[in-house]
């Protein structure tokens, strides 16, 4: 028996909006730790890993570890039927072939339930090694989204370069080139407006911009984004969900030949 009650139901809605265009079908795993997902895009260039810890739920009952295969685009459609302040409860029976979504309005005057059929999905879990990154950049997530959107009008790739000067985002295309430099800035009124750069060594990596742009669909989940970079390794683009969990995107770099 699985029963998960999420008072801030909009979190689940935002998570699905963030991943539905990147991944088609995926298994949601439920265990004592929480509600999680790990999946790759169809080209195996990007990987998404998300977790909503059990503490994020008002009520969390998961009698045994369960993996539920779902089509994410359909799940996003179901979640779009919930109101912005609805409480969302997920329910599944042991050995059942469906997942029920229950939406309760905050004043309990409307209750809706949607049942989705589960799918069998072959998926391989990848082990993500612990890495000491050469550079870690924390910045406002809206600023990062804006930069990626602006650069995608010019080119198809993004070079992210961290030096003592700051973090530089560059692209190049038929019409020309663009460079945007953000410097460390901690003298802000609100901590979420800060840009913090921790650098062990300078690092430059190049990525396909359309993936990074797709990751920024997670912007509504967090005011800050963290980029972790090391030479010749996938970048990690992480949005922390308050004390409740995270969504991390890993993107394989473009490699010079």
């Amino acid at each position: 028996m699985l029963e998960l009650r999420l008072v801030q139901g909009s979190l689940l809605k935002k998570l699905l909006e963030a991943i539905k265009d990147l991944v088609t079908d995926a298994n949601f795993d439920c265990s004592a730790t929480g509600f999680s997902l790990q999946a790759m895009d169809s080209s195996h260039v990007a990987l998404v890993s998300l977790l909503l810890r059990s503490e994020a739920f008002e009520h969390y009952r998961c009698d045994r570890n369960i993996s539920m295969g779902l089509n994410l685009s359909n799940m996003a459609k179901v979640l779009r039927c919930s109101g912005p302040d609805d409480i969302i409860t997920l329910k599944a029976d042991d050995g059942g072939d469906s997942l029920t979504f229950m939406f309760e309005s905050p004043n309990q005057d409307k209750i809706a339930d949607f049942e989705m059929k589960l799918m069998d999905i072959d998926s391989e879990h990848l082990g993500i090694p612990d890495t000491e990154y050469q550079a870690i950049v924390r910045m406002p997530s809206a600023e990062f989204a804006r930069i990626c959107k602006d650069l995608s009008g010019i080119g198809d790739t993004i070079a992210i370069s961290v030096t003592k000067e700051g973090v530089k985002f560059s692209t190049r295309g038929d019409i020309g080139s663009a460079n945007i430099v953000c410097r460390q800035n901690t003298s802000v009124d609100k901590p979420e407006d800060a840009t913090i750069i921790e650098m062990e060594e300078p690092v430059t990596l190049t990525f396909a911009l359309r993936y990074i742009n797709s990751f920024t669909k997670a912007t509504p989940l967090s005011n800050q984004v963290t980029l972790s970079l090391s030479s010749d390794l996938p970048v990690v683009v992480e949005y922390k969900i308050a004390e409740m969990g995270y969504i991390r995107f890993y993107l394989a770099p473009k490699i010079d030949e």
């Binding site: 790759m40 080209s43 195996h44 260039v45 990007a46 990987l47 391989e124 879990h125 990848l126 082990g127 993500i128 090694p129 790739t157 190049t206 396909a208 390794l233 996938p234 890993y250 993107l251 394989a252 770099p253 473009k254 490699i255 010079d256 030949e257």
Partner: peptide
């Protein structure tokens, strides 16, 4: 030129 690497060449199956 540059080539797109795959995530599976960095992270291995559990």
């Amino acid at each position: 030129g540059s080539r797109q690497s795959r995530i599976t060449s960095f992270f291995t199956k559990k």
